[in-house]
Computed example of a mutant assay.
Amino acid sequence: MHHISRDFVVYSLDSSHKPVLEIESGDRVLLDTWDARSGTINSTADLLLRPHPVGSNPATGPIRVRGAEPGDGLAVHIEAIDLAPSGFLAVKKGEGLLASRATEFATRIVPIVDGTVHFGELRFPANPMVGVIGTAPAGDGISTGYAGAHGGNMDNKHIGVGATVYLPVSVPGAGLGLGDVHGAMGDGEITFIGLEIQAQVTIRVELLKEAGFQRPLIETAEHWVTTGDGESLAGAARMAAGEMVDLLQTRLEMSFEDAYMLMSAAVDVQICQCCEPGEFPVTTRAVVSKGILP
């Protein structure tokens, strides 16, 4: 198995970045990831008073997949997410979904012990997930703070252990990067900050020739998940729903009308991240059971 340390990170997904590793289809890689602030938040005194000097959401990589060409796809299997002993939660003054009520900066260091989050006296299960995963887009690079057709900062909690993320390849070699792991995150991530934590993520990468993916698609043991993003919640929700209706039409060979009706009865359209809608892009998903779509 290959290994990439957290010494090799990028703050954008961009074809101009030199790959730190070249792999074959089917190879496994262990990636060490920073938290969203590159290890700079270590106590309650470390407040998010200013942006990180380099950038947020560092992604480990990029990885070049030998033989990957535009029009191909990647299947990235998330085999394991091993969390550091603690991470952080924070409030940034004047930011987030409840910005008008966030009048102070605050940081909390949060231990995770045997898969359980210790939030003061409260206890709840950790839910490790990958916030940022994507390939390099054609043309200009995109900050790891943003999502798009290439993947990126989707903040989709279905991207956990056992999930497979299907991604488009837009440039030779793909330029795969991954980071921004959360120990837990509520849908919405309403403060801008999930339980940010360093981790080790084990993946297996398959090259799918001529897959023709236009956007990320996520498969779990129980669900298929389409993705959306946009400046508005309405636009992002329509994108995820539109991707799902297309998937149902194609896979189940049904009309738009039947797929649309089926979605209204059996598909959930959900928010992934809406920390400041109208000011920061929203990410969404549509989720269907494999009992309906095998």
Rank of each mutant, 00 (worst) to 15 (best):
D187S: 13
F119V: 08
R204D: 14
L13F: 11
I4M: 08
R215N: 09
N127I: 06
L47V: 05
G61P: 01
L293M: 05
R64Y: 12
L74G: 11
V65N: 03
H77Q: 14
D14N: 06
L217T: 02
I190E: 12
A75R: 13
N42L: 02
L293Q: 09
V267L: 10
H17P: 10
G291D: 13
Y260L: 05
G96I: 04
E22Q: 12
G162H: 01
R285T: 07
G67S: 08
I292A: 02
D258E: 14
T227I: 09
V54G: 01
V245P: 06
E206C: 02
V169M: 14
G26Q: 03
R204E: 15
M129G: 03
R28N: 12
K18D: 09
N57M: 00
I109L: 13
I23C: 14
L252G: 13
G120E: 08
I197H: 04
H150K: 00
A221G: 15
V205K: 09
G148N: 02
H182T: 02
G188D: 07
M254S: 09
L233Y: 03
G291L: 02
L233R: 13
G55E: 00
M261P: 04
V245S: 10
E79C: 10
G278W: 00
D155I: 02
D35C: 01
L74Q: 14
E104G: 15
I190L: 11
G230W: 04
Y166W: 15
